[in-house]
Design a binder for these strands. Sequence first.
DNA 1: CATAATTATTCACTTATATGAACTATATAT
DNA 2: ATATATAGTTCATATAAGTGAATAATTATG
Lengths: 82, 82
Amino acid sequence: MRNEKLGKIICKRISDLMRQNNLSVEQLAYQSGISKGGLSEIVRYKKDPSNYTILNICLALNITMTEFFDFDELNNYTKEIS
Amino acid sequence: MRNEKLGKIICKRISDLMRQNNLSVEQLAYQSGISKGGLSEIVRYKKDPSNYTILNICLALNITMTEFFDFDELNNYTKEIS
DNA sequence: CATAATTATTCACTTATATGAACTATATAT
DNA sequence: ATATATAGTTCATATAAGTGAATAATTATG
């Protein structure tokens, strides 16, 4: 039941946070304890992160999951399709 | 890279919302367009929902994903392990 | 500009989630 | 108590995500 658009929004959120924090794929993968291959595929919109992956990324970025999921693109999309 | 505790927190969030909205497994499954078998396994902590599944549940409950992920148990857990 | 070092991508394999149908359990009616 | 309807669970199969290692691309350095 994949949703192309939701996937892009969430994966872009990760890229955006990486850019904001000046983190490379390798650095974030290492710091969050996930594989760099997997993270590479996420930022290239090939695979979508599970909630575990998102949690690990949040821990590396020092934000809560609540904060991770609180951004305009996602809110707008949810409202748009509701 | 499953995380038993995160899984429970998120699955419980769904059960809690179901209780608050007086929705049965069958009703929420139907309204959100996901399989009732899958939802059953989620509320029984056997499987964890993907972000697509969560989005569909949010749409049925008329909340945003931001709202879905904004609850104390999750925030406390994130802070606890960070 | 060649080559070493670093960073990013791909892919086979493993592990996990989603579905739908069969099955079980519970509630209601007669 | 039994039949019927309603609600919940299980499981085989399909599809998707995570890993690690090989490969490719990019960037530094002599």
